[in-house]
Design a protein around this nucleic acid. Structure first.
Lengths: 247, 247
DNA sequence: CGGAGGATTGATGCTGTTCAAGCGTAGTGG
DNA sequence: CCACTACGCTTGAACAGCATCAATCCTCCG
C-alpha cells in the first residue's frame, strides 16, 4: 500500500472529507462525504456544488504564497510540499501534505505558503467564500476546523523547537518518526516509510543542507538504526529512533 | 509610554477585549468590552461572568505546557514569554505575548506551551468551556477568533523560515523590526524599543546562544545600526535593518 | 549507450558554540 | 557612604558541527 493507492483517511467525528464520486458523472466532480451526523444532508448538498476535483501532475503547483487565497483544499491522494522562499533563493519547507489534510483552512486573504505536488495529487477544491459562509452556519463543523488549525499550530511549535534547538541527527530522527506516525494515522502502517520528497526537500524542511541530510541518513544506516531503500527508508531500531526524537 | 502603562489595544472590527472595570466593583472583576456591533449585549452579559481578572508578578507562571487547558486568556498589560522545554533543559521560546494578545485561543485540551510573566501582568481569564460555548453561538466572533489563530500560524511559519534558514544577524534584525511593528500595532510607536525579555530569552527564541545574541547586538551597535540602551534598544538605521530582515 | 538528475562521499572552511574570564549595575548590609 | 554580592551582560579564545566546494556514483530513461 502506498500514497498513490491511498485515497481517504478514516476520520473520527464531525469530519469533512471528499472522495471521488461513485456515480459515473465524468471528470471533475466529487461527492462530498461527511462522517458526522451533525452535518445535515441539506448543508452537505449546499457545499457539494462548491467542490471541484483538482488533479495535479508531479511538480505542478496548487497555489503560490501571497496570492489571493480563493480556495480551500482537501487532499484526497498524493503528497505536496508546502514552502516559503526568500528573495535570495533560500527556502523553508514548512511541511508536507498528505491524504486527508486540509490546505488553506485558516482562510486568510492570501496563501501563507506555496504548495506543489511531490507526486500526482487529487484534491477537493472549495470556493473560499462559499466554504466560509457554509461553515459559519455550522458551529460544530467550524469548531472542528478550528481544532484542526490548532493542531497545525501545535505542530508548528514542534517545528520551532526542532529547528532552533536540535541537532542534525535529532532532526532527521524526529522527521522519520513523525512521518511514520502521520502515515499510521491515515492507515499506512508499515516499517518501511515511503519518502515522496527528495533529500533537498528534507534539508529545506529541517534547516540543513542536502549533504548533511545524506550523511546523517548514511550514518543512521551504518549504525543499524534505519535501512535506506529505494524511494524510502525502513525503520530498524525504533527504540533508538524514539529516544533521539523524544520530547 | 511603556508596556506597563499600556493597557488595551484599539482593535478594528468584531474584536473582543477586556479592560478593568470602571465601576468600583472591587478586585478580580473585569468588564467585557466588544467593539463589535455584532456581539449583542445579551451575549456580552453571558460571557462577562466567565471572565476573571488575573494578576501575575514578574517570573510567575500563567500556565504550563501539557497541563489541561481550562482557560483562555486575553492580556491586558505586561509581557509574557511562551516556551517549550526539552527533558535535557534545552528551551525554545516560541514567542512573546503583549497587551491585546489572546492565549490558548486554539482551545485544544492541553496548553501547547508554558507561559510566564516577564513583567507584572494583568490578564483577563475565561473559563474555556463556557468561552467555547458562547463563541459557538456567535459565528462572526468565532470567525474572527479563527482568523487570529490563522495569523498566529502565519507568524509561526515566519519563525520556521527564520530559525531554519537565516543567519544570526538576520535573526536579530528581524526580531527587532518585528517587535517594533508589533509595538506599533498596540499604539507603542517609538524609535526606542523596550526589551522586557533578557538576552537568554532572545537567544532561546532565535535558536542562538546568549553569547551570539550579545555579540551580534554589540556589532550592530558598533556598525551604527542600533544603539543599545538600558532596558532596550534604539533603532538607528531603519533602512539597513529592514533590508536585513527583508522577506 | 549516453545523458540527466538525484544522492553520496570527501576535503576544507566558516559560523556559531563552548568554555572561561571580566564588566556593570542594582541591591544589601555594615 | 562604601564594600560586597548577585545577576545579567559582554568579550575573548578555542573548538565543533554543519556548510561549502567538488568529485563521483547510481539509477532511471530516452
Amino acid at each position: 500500500m502506498s500514497l498513490h493507492s491511498l485515497q481517504v483517511r478514516p476520520t473520527t467525528y464531525l469530519s469533512l472529507t471528499a472522495v471521488p464520486a461513485h456515480r459515473g458523472d465524468g471528470l471533475g466532480k466529487v461527492r462530498l462525504v461527511s462522517l458526522s451526523t451533525d452535518l445535515p444532508l441539506a448543508e452537505r448538498d449546499t457545499l457539494e456544488p462548491l467542490s471541484r476535483r483538482v488533479s495535479l501532475d508531479q511538480k505542478q503547483t496548487l497555489y503560490v504564497q501571497d496570492e489571493p487565497a480563493d480556495s480551500v483544499f482537501n487532499v484526497i491522494s498524493g503528497a505536496l510540499r508546502l514552502y516559503r522562499i526568500l528573495p535570495d533563493g533560500r527556502r523553508q519547507v514548512t511541511g508536507f501534505a498528505f491524504p486527508g489534510d486540509f490546505l488553506g483552512l485558516s482562510m486568510l486573504d492570501r496563501y501563507m505558503v506555496s504548495a506543489d505536488a511531490l507526486a500526482p495529487v487529487i484534491a477537493c477544491r472549495f470556493e473560499r467564500l462559499a466554504f466560509r459562509n457554509l461553515v459559519c452556519r455550522q458551529p460544530g463543523l467550524m469548531m472542528h476546523l478550528h481544532e484542526i488549525t490548532g493542531q497545525e499550530l501545535s505542530r508548528a511549535k514542534d517545528m520551532m523547537m526542532l529547528l532552533g534547538r536540535r541537532t542534525a541527527e535529532e532532526k532527521i530522527a524526529t522527521f522519520l518518526v513523525g512521518l511514520q506516525a502521520r502515515y499510521a494515522r491515515i492507515g499506512l502502517s508499515s516499517v518501511t516509510l515511503e519518502l515522496p520528497m527528495g533529500r533537498l526537500d528534507i534539508a529545506d524542511h529541517l534547516g540543513l543542507t542536502i549533504e548533511t541530510v545524506s550523511r546523517t541518513l548514511s550514518r543512521l544506516d551504518r549504525d543499524g538504526c534505519i535501512l535506506i531503500v529505494p524511494g524510502g527508508v525502513r525503520l530498524i531500531d525504533q527504540i533508538r529512533l524514539d529516544r533521539m526524537s523524544a520530547h
